[in-house]
Each structure stands twice: as C-alpha cells, then as structure tokens.
C-alpha cells in the first residue's frame, strides 16, 4: 500500500466563494471561510486538511482557477 498525502493552495483574492469545489471534494476537506477577502467574498479553505489526497477535483471544477494542488506518494 502506498500512502498519499495532498494539499491545496487557494488564491484567496481570486476566489469568489461560489462553493462548487466543496461538493466536488470526495473527503469534505473544504469549507467556505468565515472571513472575507477584499472583495467581500468568503473563500474556500481546508478544514480537514489531513484528509486531502491531492485528487485535484476541487481545482478541476473551480471556475476561476484559484486552486493549486500538490501531492506526495510514499511507497511502503
């Protein structure tokens, strides 16, 4: 078995808080923030970062291209 760990980087200022990425995540990693960016939008943030596998589903559906995805695989 290999262990997979992922993480994402959200461009907070570009994010419009549409929430499409939240439903695309299979592990409920994402939620909208309580704080807002300079345009007044809440932005996507990782609330269960440890569950992220770097599958990139959130980034693929993001209409504004705000999400970068990183992944590391360890072979056991």
């Amino acid at each position: 078995m290999a262990e997979i760990k992922g993480t994402i980087n959200v461009d907070r200022e570009r994010c419009k808080g549409c929430g499409v990425c939240l439903g695309a995540c299979p592990f409920d990693v994402l939620a909208l923030s309580a704080e807002v960016n300079s345009k007044g939008y809440p932005f996507a943030s990782q609330v269960r970062a440890e569950a992220c596998t770097g599958c990139a589903n959130c980034a693929v559906v993001c209409p504004d291209g705000c999400i970068e995805v990183f992944r590391k695989i360890w072979k056991k």
């Binding site: 760990k5 992922g6 993480t7 200022e13 570009r14 419009k16 808080g17 549409c18 929430g19 499409v20 939008y41 770097g54 990139a56 980034a59 693929v60 993001c62 209409p63 504004d64 291209g65 999400i67 970068e68 995805v69 990183f70 992944r71 590391k72």
Partner: peptide, 25 residues
C-alpha cells in the same frame, strides 16, 4: 510535494468578470 494541478500559463492575471460559479470560467 509535487504540483499536480495549477493555473494554466495561458490564463491572464485578470480576475474574470463572470458571476461566482459561472460555467464560462
């Protein structure tokens, strides 16, 4: 960690004027 998905270099830095969640983006 390895980057597996990022913003295309052909997308400009302009923030799209589309409504949040618009399919055009």
């Amino acid at each position: 960690m390895d980057k597996v998905y990022g913003r295309s270099s052909l997308l400009t830095d302009n923030v799209m004027h589309y409504c949040p969640g618009c399919s055009h983006g």
